[in-house]
Write a protein that binds this DNA or RNA. Structure first.
Lengths: 274, 274
DNA sequence: GTAAGCGCGTATCGTATGGTACGTATTTTC
DNA sequence: GAAAATACGTACCATACGATACGCGCTTAC
Protein backbone atom coordinates (compact mmCIF):
# COMPACT_ATOMS: atom_id res chain seq x y z
CA UNK A 1 0.00 0.00 0.00
CA UNK A 2 1.26 3.46 -0.82
CA UNK A 3 1.82 5.06 2.55
CA UNK A 4 -1.46 6.37 3.83
CA UNK A 5 -1.99 10.02 4.60
CA UNK A 6 -2.15 9.29 8.31
CA UNK A 7 1.28 7.71 8.10
CA UNK A 8 2.71 10.65 6.20
CA UNK A 9 1.43 12.94 8.91
CA UNK A 10 3.00 10.87 11.63
CA UNK A 11 6.30 10.92 9.75
CA UNK A 12 6.53 14.67 9.37
CA UNK A 13 4.86 15.57 12.63
CA UNK A 14 8.09 16.55 14.37
CA UNK A 15 9.24 18.77 11.55
CA UNK A 16 6.09 20.85 11.80
CA UNK A 17 5.60 24.15 13.56
CA UNK A 18 3.20 24.33 16.46
CA UNK A 19 0.18 25.55 14.53
CA UNK A 20 0.39 22.92 11.85
CA UNK A 21 0.95 20.30 14.50
CA UNK A 22 -2.37 21.28 16.06
CA UNK A 23 -3.92 20.86 12.64
CA UNK A 24 -2.31 17.44 12.33
CA UNK A 25 -3.60 16.31 15.70
CA UNK A 26 -7.16 17.43 15.08
CA UNK A 27 -7.08 15.66 11.73
CA UNK A 28 -5.85 12.43 13.29
CA UNK A 29 -8.38 12.74 16.11
CA UNK A 30 -11.26 13.13 13.67
CA UNK A 31 -9.80 11.11 10.84
CA UNK A 32 -10.68 11.50 8.11
CA UNK A 33 -13.91 13.40 8.45
CA UNK A 34 -12.54 16.79 9.48
CA UNK A 35 -10.28 16.72 6.46
CA UNK A 36 -13.34 16.46 4.25
CA UNK A 37 -14.87 19.63 5.60
CA UNK A 38 -14.02 23.11 4.37
CA UNK A 39 -10.78 24.84 5.23
CA UNK A 40 -12.67 27.24 7.45
CA UNK A 41 -14.31 24.45 9.46
CA UNK A 42 -11.07 22.53 9.70
CA UNK A 43 -9.22 25.60 10.92
CA UNK A 44 -11.89 26.34 13.47
CA UNK A 45 -11.81 22.78 14.77
CA UNK A 46 -8.05 22.98 15.10
CA UNK A 47 -8.17 26.46 16.60
CA UNK A 48 -5.89 27.91 13.98
CA UNK A 49 -6.37 30.13 10.95
CA UNK A 50 -7.16 28.90 7.48
CA UNK A 51 -3.76 29.71 5.98
CA UNK A 52 -2.21 27.44 8.56
CA UNK A 53 -4.39 24.60 7.35
CA UNK A 54 -3.34 25.30 3.80
CA UNK A 55 0.31 25.39 4.78
CA UNK A 56 -0.26 22.12 6.57
CA UNK A 57 -1.64 20.30 3.56
CA UNK A 58 1.07 21.86 1.40
CA UNK A 59 3.67 20.38 3.73
CA UNK A 60 2.08 16.97 3.27
CA UNK A 61 2.94 17.30 -0.39
CA UNK A 62 -0.39 18.34 -1.88
CA UNK A 63 -0.61 21.12 -4.42
CA UNK A 64 -3.89 22.44 -3.07
CA UNK A 65 -6.70 21.65 -0.69
CA UNK A 66 -9.04 19.86 -3.13
CA UNK A 67 -6.20 17.54 -4.09
CA UNK A 68 -5.78 16.70 -0.43
CA UNK A 69 -9.48 16.00 -0.05
CA UNK A 70 -9.51 13.83 -3.13
CA UNK A 71 -6.70 11.77 -1.66
CA UNK A 72 -8.65 11.35 1.57
CA UNK A 73 -11.71 10.26 -0.37
CA UNK A 74 -9.76 7.74 -2.39
CA UNK A 75 -8.27 6.32 0.75
CA UNK A 76 -11.69 6.10 2.34
CA UNK A 77 -13.18 4.42 -0.68
CA UNK A 78 -10.38 1.89 -0.76
CA UNK A 79 -10.84 1.22 2.93
CA UNK A 80 -14.56 0.69 2.63
CA UNK A 81 -14.21 -1.58 -0.35
CA UNK A 82 -11.50 -3.92 0.84
CA UNK A 83 -12.47 -5.55 4.07
CA UNK A 84 -9.00 -7.05 4.39
CA UNK A 85 -7.52 -3.81 5.64
CA UNK A 86 -10.18 -3.65 8.29
CA UNK A 87 -9.13 -6.80 10.07
CA UNK A 88 -6.76 -4.69 12.09
CA UNK A 89 -5.04 -7.42 13.94
CA UNK A 90 -6.41 -10.84 14.52
CA UNK A 91 -3.95 -13.00 12.64
CA UNK A 92 -5.40 -15.98 14.45
CA UNK A 93 -8.28 -16.19 12.02
CA UNK A 94 -6.17 -15.28 9.03
CA UNK A 95 -4.24 -18.44 8.37
CA UNK A 96 -6.86 -20.82 9.69
CA UNK A 97 -9.63 -19.84 7.34
CA UNK A 98 -9.43 -19.16 3.66
CA UNK A 99 -8.99 -15.48 2.77
CA UNK A 100 -11.38 -16.14 -0.08
CA UNK A 101 -14.02 -17.15 2.40
CA UNK A 102 -13.57 -14.10 4.61
CA UNK A 103 -13.57 -11.75 1.65
CA UNK A 104 -16.68 -13.38 0.25
CA UNK A 105 -18.53 -13.12 3.54
CA UNK A 106 -17.59 -9.48 3.80
CA UNK A 107 -18.80 -8.96 0.25
CA UNK A 108 -22.09 -10.53 1.15
CA UNK A 109 -22.51 -8.34 4.20
CA UNK A 110 -21.66 -5.23 2.21
CA UNK A 111 -23.97 -6.19 -0.60
CA UNK A 112 -26.93 -6.82 1.64
CA UNK A 113 -26.20 -3.74 3.70
CA UNK A 114 -26.80 -1.63 0.63
CA UNK A 115 -29.88 -3.57 -0.31
CA UNK A 116 -32.97 -2.75 1.66
CA UNK A 117 -35.94 -5.00 2.25
CA UNK A 118 -37.97 -2.46 0.37
CA UNK A 119 -35.86 -2.78 -2.73
CA UNK A 120 -35.92 -6.54 -2.54
CA UNK A 121 -39.67 -6.46 -2.12
CA UNK A 122 -40.03 -4.21 -5.13
CA UNK A 123 -37.92 -6.54 -7.24
CA UNK A 124 -39.90 -9.54 -6.04
CA UNK A 125 -43.03 -7.69 -7.02
CA UNK A 126 -41.62 -7.15 -10.48
CA UNK A 127 -40.59 -10.76 -10.84
CA UNK A 128 -43.95 -12.05 -9.70
CA UNK A 129 -46.20 -10.39 -12.21
CA UNK A 130 -47.67 -13.40 -14.03
CA UNK A 131 -49.20 -11.30 -16.79
CA UNK A 132 -45.83 -10.57 -18.34
CA UNK A 133 -43.08 -12.77 -19.66
CA UNK A 134 -39.68 -12.94 -18.07
CA UNK A 135 -36.38 -13.12 -19.92
CA UNK A 136 -32.97 -13.70 -18.35
CA UNK A 137 -29.64 -13.08 -19.97
CA UNK A 138 -26.06 -12.90 -18.74
CA UNK A 139 -22.55 -12.16 -19.86
CA UNK A 140 -19.56 -14.35 -20.37
CA UNK A 141 -19.16 -15.30 -16.73
CA UNK A 142 -22.58 -14.40 -15.46
CA UNK A 143 -24.68 -16.35 -17.91
CA UNK A 144 -24.63 -19.30 -15.49
CA UNK A 145 -26.31 -17.07 -12.93
CA UNK A 146 -29.03 -16.23 -15.41
CA UNK A 147 -29.48 -19.93 -16.05
CA UNK A 148 -29.55 -20.70 -12.36
CA UNK A 149 -32.23 -18.16 -11.70
CA UNK A 150 -34.22 -19.17 -14.76
CA UNK A 151 -34.10 -22.84 -13.79
CA UNK A 152 -35.79 -22.07 -10.49
CA UNK A 153 -38.23 -19.38 -11.52
CA UNK A 154 -39.42 -21.37 -14.51
CA UNK A 155 -40.82 -23.85 -12.05
CA UNK A 156 -42.81 -21.49 -9.89
CA UNK A 157 -44.17 -19.18 -12.55
CA UNK A 158 -45.05 -19.33 -16.23
CA UNK A 159 -43.27 -17.75 -19.17
CA UNK A 160 -39.70 -17.70 -17.93
CA UNK A 161 -37.12 -17.79 -20.70
CA UNK A 162 -33.37 -17.91 -20.55
CA UNK A 163 -31.68 -16.28 -23.51
CA UNK A 164 -28.77 -18.47 -24.50
CA UNK A 165 -26.25 -18.53 -27.26
CA UNK A 166 -25.50 -15.75 -29.66
CA UNK A 167 -26.61 -12.16 -29.52
CA UNK A 168 -28.50 -12.54 -32.76
CA UNK A 169 -30.65 -15.20 -31.15
CA UNK A 170 -31.59 -12.85 -28.33
CA UNK A 171 -32.43 -10.11 -30.75
CA UNK A 172 -34.97 -12.26 -32.49
CA UNK A 173 -36.78 -12.67 -29.19
CA UNK A 174 -37.17 -8.91 -28.85
CA UNK A 175 -40.23 -9.24 -31.04
CA UNK A 176 -41.94 -11.07 -28.19
CA UNK A 177 -41.14 -8.45 -25.57
CA UNK A 178 -43.42 -5.64 -24.50
CA UNK A 179 -44.37 -3.32 -21.69
CA UNK A 180 -45.59 -6.02 -19.36
CA UNK A 181 -42.43 -8.05 -19.66
CA UNK A 182 -39.30 -8.16 -17.56
CA UNK A 183 -35.70 -8.55 -18.64
CA UNK A 184 -33.22 -9.68 -16.00
CA UNK A 185 -29.66 -8.87 -17.05
CA UNK A 186 -26.45 -9.98 -15.38
CA UNK A 187 -23.53 -7.77 -16.31
CA UNK A 188 -20.32 -7.31 -14.39
CA UNK A 189 -17.14 -5.80 -15.71
CA UNK A 190 -15.72 -5.99 -18.15
CA UNK A 191 -19.18 -5.00 -19.22
CA UNK A 192 -20.29 -6.45 -22.50
CA UNK A 193 -21.39 -4.19 -25.32
CA UNK A 194 -23.71 -6.87 -26.57
CA UNK A 195 -25.65 -6.81 -23.30
CA UNK A 196 -25.91 -3.03 -23.33
CA UNK A 197 -27.13 -2.99 -26.90
CA UNK A 198 -29.69 -5.63 -26.12
CA UNK A 199 -30.88 -3.98 -22.93
CA UNK A 200 -31.25 -0.69 -24.79
CA UNK A 201 -33.44 -2.25 -27.42
CA UNK A 202 -35.54 -4.00 -24.83
CA UNK A 203 -35.83 -0.84 -22.78
CA UNK A 204 -36.88 0.98 -25.90
CA UNK A 205 -39.73 -1.46 -26.25
CA UNK A 206 -40.88 -0.66 -22.75
CA UNK A 207 -39.52 -3.79 -21.14
CA UNK A 208 -38.74 -3.44 -17.44
CA UNK A 209 -35.06 -4.11 -16.88
CA UNK A 210 -33.74 -5.65 -13.67
CA UNK A 211 -29.97 -5.46 -13.52
CA UNK A 212 -27.52 -7.53 -11.52
CA UNK A 213 -24.13 -5.86 -11.64
CA UNK A 214 -21.05 -5.06 -9.58
CA UNK A 215 -20.44 -2.07 -7.39
CA UNK A 216 -19.11 -0.04 -10.29
CA UNK A 217 -22.42 -0.37 -12.08
CA UNK A 218 -22.77 -1.55 -15.62
CA UNK A 219 -23.85 1.20 -18.04
CA UNK A 220 -27.12 -0.69 -18.23
CA UNK A 221 -27.93 0.77 -14.82
CA UNK A 222 -29.23 3.90 -16.47
CA UNK A 223 -31.97 1.93 -18.18
CA UNK A 224 -32.78 -0.33 -15.31
CA UNK A 225 -35.91 -0.21 -13.23
CA UNK A 226 -34.12 -2.08 -10.45
CA UNK A 227 -30.42 -2.42 -9.81
CA UNK A 228 -28.71 -4.98 -7.61
CA UNK A 229 -25.11 -3.97 -7.03
CA UNK A 230 -23.05 -6.81 -5.59
CA UNK A 231 -19.53 -6.65 -4.25
CA UNK A 232 -17.17 -8.67 -6.37
CA UNK A 233 -13.65 -7.99 -5.09
CA UNK A 234 -11.86 -11.04 -3.70
CA UNK A 235 -8.21 -12.02 -3.29
CA UNK A 236 -8.18 -13.81 -6.62
CA UNK A 237 -7.35 -12.95 -10.21
CA UNK A 238 -11.06 -13.23 -10.90
CA UNK A 239 -13.99 -11.28 -9.62
CA UNK A 240 -16.52 -13.14 -7.52
CA UNK A 241 -20.14 -13.46 -8.55
CA UNK A 242 -21.05 -15.06 -5.26
CA UNK A 243 -22.80 -12.04 -3.80
CA UNK A 244 -24.99 -11.77 -6.88
CA UNK A 245 -25.82 -15.42 -6.61
CA UNK A 246 -26.94 -15.14 -3.01
CA UNK A 247 -29.11 -12.17 -3.87
CA UNK A 248 -30.53 -14.26 -6.68
CA UNK A 249 -31.23 -17.11 -4.30
CA UNK A 250 -32.88 -14.75 -1.88
CA UNK A 251 -35.12 -13.44 -4.61
CA UNK A 252 -35.90 -16.93 -5.83
CA UNK A 253 -36.95 -17.90 -2.33
CA UNK A 254 -39.08 -14.80 -1.90
CA UNK A 255 -40.78 -15.19 -5.27
CA UNK A 256 -41.51 -18.83 -4.51
CA UNK A 257 -43.01 -17.95 -1.16
CA UNK A 258 -45.12 -15.23 -2.69
CA UNK A 259 -46.46 -17.40 -5.47
CA UNK A 260 -46.95 -20.35 -3.18
CA UNK A 261 -50.56 -21.07 -4.07
CA UNK A 262 -50.35 -20.74 -7.80
CA UNK A 263 -46.94 -22.42 -7.98
CA UNK A 264 -48.14 -25.43 -5.99
CA UNK A 265 -50.80 -26.04 -8.57
CA UNK A 266 -48.26 -25.51 -11.29
CA UNK A 267 -45.84 -28.03 -9.79
CA UNK A 268 -48.61 -30.62 -9.44
CA UNK A 269 -49.43 -30.21 -13.07
CA UNK A 270 -45.76 -30.63 -13.94
CA UNK A 271 -45.55 -33.88 -12.05
CA UNK A 272 -48.54 -35.14 -14.00
CA UNK A 273 -46.91 -34.30 -17.28
CA UNK A 274 -43.96 -36.60 -16.66
CA UNK B 1 -29.90 5.80 15.43
CA UNK B 2 -32.02 8.23 13.48
CA UNK B 3 -32.69 6.54 10.18
CA UNK B 4 -29.52 6.60 8.16
CA UNK B 5 -29.34 8.37 4.86
CA UNK B 6 -28.99 5.10 3.02
CA UNK B 7 -32.26 3.96 4.55
CA UNK B 8 -34.00 7.17 3.65
CA UNK B 9 -32.89 6.68 0.08
CA UNK B 10 -34.18 3.13 0.02
CA UNK B 11 -37.48 4.32 1.43
CA UNK B 12 -38.12 6.96 -1.16
CA UNK B 13 -36.48 5.17 -4.04
CA UNK B 14 -39.72 4.17 -5.66
CA UNK B 15 -41.18 7.65 -5.45
CA UNK B 16 -38.25 9.05 -7.40
CA UNK B 17 -38.12 9.83 -11.09
CA UNK B 18 -35.63 7.95 -13.25
CA UNK B 19 -32.85 10.52 -13.12
CA UNK B 20 -32.86 10.85 -9.38
CA UNK B 21 -32.99 7.11 -9.08
CA UNK B 22 -29.76 6.92 -11.03
CA UNK B 23 -28.28 9.36 -8.59
CA UNK B 24 -29.50 7.21 -5.73
CA UNK B 25 -27.98 4.07 -7.18
CA UNK B 26 -24.60 5.64 -7.80
CA UNK B 27 -24.59 7.01 -4.29
CA UNK B 28 -25.42 3.65 -2.78
CA UNK B 29 -22.86 1.93 -4.96
CA UNK B 30 -20.12 4.32 -3.91
CA UNK B 31 -21.43 5.03 -0.47
CA UNK B 32 -20.69 7.47 0.95
CA UNK B 33 -17.68 8.77 -0.91
CA UNK B 34 -19.39 10.04 -4.05
CA UNK B 35 -21.70 12.08 -1.87
CA UNK B 36 -18.73 13.89 -0.43
CA UNK B 37 -17.52 15.07 -3.79
CA UNK B 38 -18.78 18.15 -5.55
CA UNK B 39 -22.16 18.29 -7.22
CA UNK B 40 -20.47 18.34 -10.61
CA UNK B 41 -18.46 15.20 -9.90
CA UNK B 42 -21.45 13.43 -8.40
CA UNK B 43 -23.61 14.29 -11.38
CA UNK B 44 -20.95 13.09 -13.79
CA UNK B 45 -20.59 9.81 -11.92
CA UNK B 46 -24.33 9.30 -12.08
CA UNK B 47 -24.58 10.39 -15.69
CA UNK B 48 -27.12 13.11 -14.98
CA UNK B 49 -27.00 16.87 -14.73
CA UNK B 50 -26.19 18.80 -11.58
CA UNK B 51 -29.70 20.10 -11.01
CA UNK B 52 -30.89 16.52 -10.85
CA UNK B 53 -28.42 15.87 -8.05
CA UNK B 54 -29.67 18.92 -6.21
CA UNK B 55 -33.28 17.86 -6.67
CA UNK B 56 -32.26 14.45 -5.41
CA UNK B 57 -30.80 15.74 -2.16
CA UNK B 58 -33.75 18.09 -1.79
CA UNK B 59 -36.09 15.12 -2.02
CA UNK B 60 -34.14 13.45 0.75
CA UNK B 61 -35.15 16.36 2.93
CA UNK B 62 -32.03 18.47 2.92
CA UNK B 63 -32.20 22.22 2.48
CA UNK B 64 -29.05 22.34 0.37
CA UNK B 65 -26.10 20.29 -0.77
CA UNK B 66 -23.68 21.28 2.02
CA UNK B 67 -26.26 20.22 4.59
CA UNK B 68 -26.49 16.86 2.87
CA UNK B 69 -22.71 16.49 2.91
CA UNK B 70 -22.57 17.43 6.57
CA UNK B 71 -25.09 14.70 7.32
CA UNK B 72 -22.99 12.17 5.42
CA UNK B 73 -19.92 13.26 7.34
CA UNK B 74 -21.69 12.96 10.66
CA UNK B 75 -22.88 9.50 9.77
CA UNK B 76 -19.41 8.52 8.66
CA UNK B 77 -17.87 9.88 11.85
CA UNK B 78 -20.35 7.96 13.97
CA UNK B 79 -19.66 4.82 12.02
CA UNK B 80 -15.90 5.15 12.30
CA UNK B 81 -15.99 5.85 16.01
CA UNK B 82 -17.53 2.54 16.91
CA UNK B 83 -15.37 -0.06 15.20
CA UNK B 84 -17.66 -2.83 16.40
CA UNK B 85 -20.42 -1.55 14.20
CA UNK B 86 -18.19 -1.97 11.19
CA UNK B 87 -17.62 -5.65 11.64
CA UNK B 88 -21.18 -6.65 12.19
CA UNK B 89 -23.06 -3.88 10.54
CA UNK B 90 -24.62 -1.09 12.50
CA UNK B 91 -27.64 -1.92 14.63
CA UNK B 92 -29.97 -0.11 12.30
CA UNK B 93 -29.19 -2.50 9.49
CA UNK B 94 -28.86 -5.51 11.72
CA UNK B 95 -32.51 -6.37 11.92
CA UNK B 96 -32.81 -5.71 8.24
CA UNK B 97 -30.29 -8.36 7.32
CA UNK B 98 -31.99 -11.24 5.69
CA UNK B 99 -32.14 -14.62 7.38
CA UNK B 100 -31.07 -16.00 4.02
CA UNK B 101 -27.83 -14.09 4.34
CA UNK B 102 -27.07 -15.30 7.84
CA UNK B 103 -27.91 -18.89 6.95
CA UNK B 104 -25.73 -18.71 3.87
CA UNK B 105 -22.79 -17.34 5.80
CA UNK B 106 -23.18 -20.09 8.36
CA UNK B 107 -23.26 -22.62 5.54
CA UNK B 108 -20.06 -21.19 4.12
CA UNK B 109 -18.30 -21.36 7.46
CA UNK B 110 -19.44 -24.94 8.01
CA UNK B 111 -18.47 -25.97 4.52
CA UNK B 112 -14.97 -24.57 4.77
CA UNK B 113 -14.53 -25.91 8.27
CA UNK B 114 -14.88 -29.44 6.92
CA UNK B 115 -12.63 -28.73 4.01
CA UNK B 116 -8.96 -28.76 4.89
CA UNK B 117 -6.25 -26.86 3.06
CA UNK B 118 -4.79 -30.22 2.26
CA UNK B 119 -7.91 -31.38 0.48
CA UNK B 120 -8.18 -28.15 -1.45
CA UNK B 121 -4.55 -28.39 -2.47
CA UNK B 122 -5.07 -31.95 -3.65
CA UNK B 123 -8.05 -30.94 -5.76
CA UNK B 124 -6.14 -28.04 -7.22
CA UNK B 125 -3.39 -30.46 -8.11
CA UNK B 126 -5.89 -32.66 -9.89
CA UNK B 127 -7.43 -29.77 -11.77
CA UNK B 128 -4.08 -28.43 -12.87
CA UNK B 129 -2.73 -31.44 -14.70
CA UNK B 130 -2.42 -30.12 -18.25
CA UNK B 131 -1.77 -33.55 -19.75
CA UNK B 132 -5.34 -34.65 -19.24
CA UNK B 133 -8.64 -33.27 -20.41
CA UNK B 134 -11.21 -31.89 -18.06
CA UNK B 135 -14.96 -32.39 -18.32
CA UNK B 136 -17.59 -30.66 -16.20
CA UNK B 137 -21.20 -31.66 -15.83
CA UNK B 138 -24.02 -30.73 -13.50
CA UNK B 139 -27.59 -31.51 -12.64
CA UNK B 140 -30.78 -29.65 -13.14
CA UNK B 141 -29.93 -26.80 -10.79
CA UNK B 142 -26.19 -27.24 -10.59
CA UNK B 143 -25.40 -27.22 -14.28
CA UNK B 144 -24.89 -23.45 -14.09
CA UNK B 145 -22.13 -24.06 -11.56
CA UNK B 146 -20.44 -26.43 -13.96
CA UNK B 147 -20.71 -23.80 -16.66
CA UNK B 148 -19.37 -21.13 -14.35
CA UNK B 149 -16.35 -23.17 -13.43
CA UNK B 150 -15.76 -24.26 -17.02
CA UNK B 151 -15.95 -20.67 -18.28
CA UNK B 152 -13.08 -19.69 -16.00
CA UNK B 153 -10.90 -22.76 -16.19
CA UNK B 154 -11.13 -22.92 -19.96
CA UNK B 155 -9.22 -19.67 -20.02
CA UNK B 156 -6.32 -20.66 -17.83
CA UNK B 157 -5.79 -24.19 -19.05
CA UNK B 158 -6.35 -26.19 -22.20
CA UNK B 159 -8.89 -28.91 -22.86
CA UNK B 160 -11.72 -27.87 -20.60
CA UNK B 161 -15.13 -29.03 -21.76
CA UNK B 162 -18.54 -28.44 -20.33
CA UNK B 163 -21.02 -31.18 -21.02
CA UNK B 164 -24.32 -29.59 -21.90
CA UNK B 165 -27.67 -30.78 -23.06
CA UNK B 166 -28.97 -34.28 -23.00
CA UNK B 167 -27.49 -37.29 -21.33
CA UNK B 168 -27.00 -39.01 -24.65
CA UNK B 169 -24.70 -36.21 -25.73
CA UNK B 170 -22.52 -36.68 -22.67
CA UNK B 171 -22.32 -40.39 -23.25
CA UNK B 172 -20.88 -39.89 -26.68
CA UNK B 173 -18.01 -37.96 -25.16
CA UNK B 174 -17.08 -40.89 -22.96
CA UNK B 175 -15.13 -42.20 -25.90
CA UNK B 176 -12.70 -39.30 -25.44
CA UNK B 177 -12.13 -39.91 -21.74
CA UNK B 178 -9.28 -41.86 -20.25
CA UNK B 179 -7.08 -42.35 -17.23
CA UNK B 180 -5.41 -38.97 -17.42
CA UNK B 181 -8.69 -37.10 -17.58
CA UNK B 182 -10.82 -35.50 -14.90
CA UNK B 183 -14.58 -35.34 -14.59
CA UNK B 184 -16.03 -32.70 -12.32
CA UNK B 185 -19.60 -33.52 -11.33
CA UNK B 186 -22.06 -31.29 -9.51
CA UNK B 187 -24.86 -33.26 -7.91
CA UNK B 188 -27.08 -32.24 -5.04
CA UNK B 189 -30.35 -33.80 -4.04
CA UNK B 190 -32.57 -34.81 -5.43
CA UNK B 191 -29.66 -36.65 -6.94
CA UNK B 192 -30.03 -37.39 -10.60
CA UNK B 193 -29.79 -40.93 -11.85
CA UNK B 194 -28.41 -39.69 -15.11
CA UNK B 195 -25.42 -38.20 -13.37
CA UNK B 196 -24.75 -41.33 -11.38
CA UNK B 197 -24.92 -43.51 -14.48
CA UNK B 198 -22.58 -41.22 -16.33
CA UNK B 199 -20.09 -40.95 -13.46
CA UNK B 200 -20.06 -44.72 -13.15
CA UNK B 201 -19.20 -45.18 -16.78
CA UNK B 202 -16.50 -42.54 -16.62
CA UNK B 203 -15.09 -44.04 -13.46
CA UNK B 204 -15.01 -47.40 -15.15
CA UNK B 205 -12.82 -45.93 -17.85
CA UNK B 206 -10.35 -44.73 -15.21
CA UNK B 207 -11.41 -41.12 -15.23
CA UNK B 208 -10.74 -39.25 -11.99
CA UNK B 209 -14.00 -37.96 -10.57
CA UNK B 210 -14.22 -34.75 -8.54
CA UNK B 211 -17.62 -34.40 -6.93
CA UNK B 212 -19.39 -31.30 -5.67
CA UNK B 213 -22.39 -32.36 -3.60
CA UNK B 214 -24.36 -31.50 -0.48
CA UNK B 215 -23.75 -32.68 3.05
CA UNK B 216 -25.79 -35.84 2.53
CA UNK B 217 -23.46 -36.90 -0.24
CA UNK B 218 -24.60 -37.96 -3.65
CA UNK B 219 -24.16 -41.69 -4.34
CA UNK B 220 -21.44 -40.62 -6.75
CA UNK B 221 -19.25 -40.01 -3.70
CA UNK B 222 -18.37 -43.72 -3.72
CA UNK B 223 -16.60 -43.36 -7.02
CA UNK B 224 -15.08 -39.97 -6.48
CA UNK B 225 -11.41 -39.28 -6.06
CA UNK B 226 -12.26 -35.99 -4.30
CA UNK B 227 -15.50 -34.89 -2.66
CA UNK B 228 -16.53 -31.37 -1.80
CA UNK B 229 -19.52 -31.42 0.52
CA UNK B 230 -21.23 -28.08 0.81
CA UNK B 231 -23.99 -27.07 3.18
CA UNK B 232 -27.17 -26.28 1.35
CA UNK B 233 -29.86 -25.72 3.98
CA UNK B 234 -31.39 -22.25 3.98
CA UNK B 235 -34.73 -20.79 5.07
CA UNK B 236 -36.19 -21.13 1.61
CA UNK B 237 -38.17 -23.72 -0.28
CA UNK B 238 -35.03 -24.33 -2.33
CA UNK B 239 -31.62 -25.57 -1.37
CA UNK B 240 -28.72 -23.20 -1.75
CA UNK B 241 -25.80 -23.91 -4.03
CA UNK B 242 -23.94 -20.89 -2.79
CA UNK B 243 -21.41 -22.75 -0.68
CA UNK B 244 -20.49 -24.94 -3.63
CA UNK B 245 -20.05 -21.89 -5.76
CA UNK B 246 -17.67 -20.27 -3.31
CA UNK B 247 -15.62 -23.44 -3.12
CA UNK B 248 -15.59 -23.42 -6.89
CA UNK B 249 -14.42 -19.82 -6.95
CA UNK B 250 -11.73 -20.64 -4.43
CA UNK B 251 -10.49 -23.49 -6.58
CA UNK B 252 -10.65 -21.37 -9.71
CA UNK B 253 -8.51 -18.75 -8.03
CA UNK B 254 -6.02 -21.31 -6.76
CA UNK B 255 -5.73 -23.03 -10.12
CA UNK B 256 -5.22 -19.71 -11.85
CA UNK B 257 -2.50 -18.74 -9.43
CA UNK B 258 -0.80 -22.07 -9.83
CA UNK B 259 -0.84 -22.00 -13.62
CA UNK B 260 0.09 -18.35 -13.74
CA UNK B 261 3.01 -18.68 -16.12
CA UNK B 262 1.48 -20.98 -18.65
CA UNK B 263 -1.93 -19.33 -18.46
CA UNK B 264 -0.48 -15.88 -19.08
CA UNK B 265 0.97 -17.12 -22.35
CA UNK B 266 -2.34 -18.78 -23.12
CA UNK B 267 -4.30 -15.62 -22.51
CA UNK B 268 -1.93 -13.62 -24.71
CA UNK B 269 -2.49 -16.06 -27.48
CA UNK B 270 -6.24 -15.77 -27.00
CA UNK B 271 -6.13 -12.01 -27.32
CA UNK B 272 -4.27 -12.41 -30.59
CA UNK B 273 -6.92 -14.73 -31.94
CA UNK B 274 -9.64 -12.15 -31.59
C1' DG C 1 19.62 43.93 25.17
C1' DT C 2 19.13 44.18 20.39
C1' DA C 3 18.42 42.48 15.91
C1' DA C 4 17.13 38.97 12.74
C1' DG C 5 14.30 35.20 11.28
C1' DC C 6 10.47 32.42 11.42
C1' DG C 7 5.62 31.58 12.20
C1' DC C 8 1.01 32.99 12.39
C1' DG C 9 -3.14 35.63 11.54
C1' DT C 10 -5.85 39.46 9.00
C1' DA C 11 -7.56 41.14 4.88
C1' DT C 12 -8.43 40.71 0.16
C1' DC C 13 -8.83 38.52 -4.41
C1' DG C 14 -10.22 35.27 -8.14
C1' DT C 15 -12.63 31.35 -9.03
C1' DA C 16 -15.05 27.19 -8.78
C1' DT C 17 -19.16 25.71 -6.62
C1' DG C 18 -23.95 25.44 -5.44
C1' DG C 19 -28.26 27.33 -6.70
C1' DT C 20 -32.12 28.85 -9.91
C1' DA C 21 -34.93 30.20 -13.73
C1' DC C 22 -36.55 28.70 -17.98
C1' DG C 23 -37.35 25.99 -22.07
C1' DT C 24 -37.88 21.47 -24.12
C1' DA C 25 -38.89 16.69 -24.24
C1' DT C 26 -41.24 12.96 -22.45
C1' DT C 27 -44.80 10.79 -20.24
C1' DT C 28 -49.37 10.37 -18.47
C1' DT C 29 -54.21 11.10 -18.37
C1' DC C 30 -58.63 11.98 -20.19
C1' DG D 1 -55.07 11.18 -30.02
C1' DA D 2 -54.58 15.59 -27.75
C1' DA D 3 -53.50 18.23 -23.83
C1' DA D 4 -51.57 18.79 -19.46
C1' DA D 5 -48.21 17.79 -16.16
C1' DT D 6 -44.03 16.16 -14.83
C1' DA D 7 -39.11 15.74 -15.35
C1' DC D 8 -34.75 16.81 -17.21
C1' DG D 9 -31.07 19.65 -18.99
C1' DT D 10 -28.91 24.28 -20.52
C1' DA D 11 -27.53 28.70 -19.23
C1' DC D 12 -26.71 31.99 -16.02
C1' DC D 13 -26.10 34.08 -11.32
C1' DA D 14 -24.54 34.83 -6.53
C1' DT D 15 -21.52 33.50 -3.20
C1' DA D 16 -18.78 30.83 -0.36
C1' DC D 17 -14.57 28.82 -0.80
C1' DG D 18 -9.60 28.29 -1.40
C1' DA D 19 -5.62 30.93 -2.22
C1' DT D 20 -2.27 34.74 -1.44
C1' DA D 21 -0.08 39.00 -0.07
C1' DC D 22 1.23 41.46 3.83
C1' DG D 23 2.33 42.79 8.48
C1' DC D 24 2.71 41.91 13.34
C1' DG D 25 4.60 39.29 17.18
C1' DC D 26 7.22 35.86 19.18
C1' DT D 27 11.37 33.37 19.64
C1' DT D 28 16.19 32.85 19.36
C1' DA D 29 20.87 33.97 18.61
C1' DC D 30 24.67 36.94 19.31
Amino acid sequence: MTTSIAETIADRLDTMPAGERRAAHTLIAGYPVVGLKTVAEFSQAAGVSSPTILRFVARLGFQNYPEFQAALQDELAAQLQSPASRTHGNPATQDRTSPMLEATIENLRQTFMHLSQKQLAAIVQTLCDPRGKMFLVGGRFTDPLARYMAAHLAIVRPNVFHLAGQESLWRDRLIDMGKRDVLVVFDIRRYQDSLLRFAEKAHHRGVQVVLFTDQWLSPIARLARHVVAGRTAVPSPWDSSASLMIVAETLIGAVTARLEDSSARRIDEMENLR
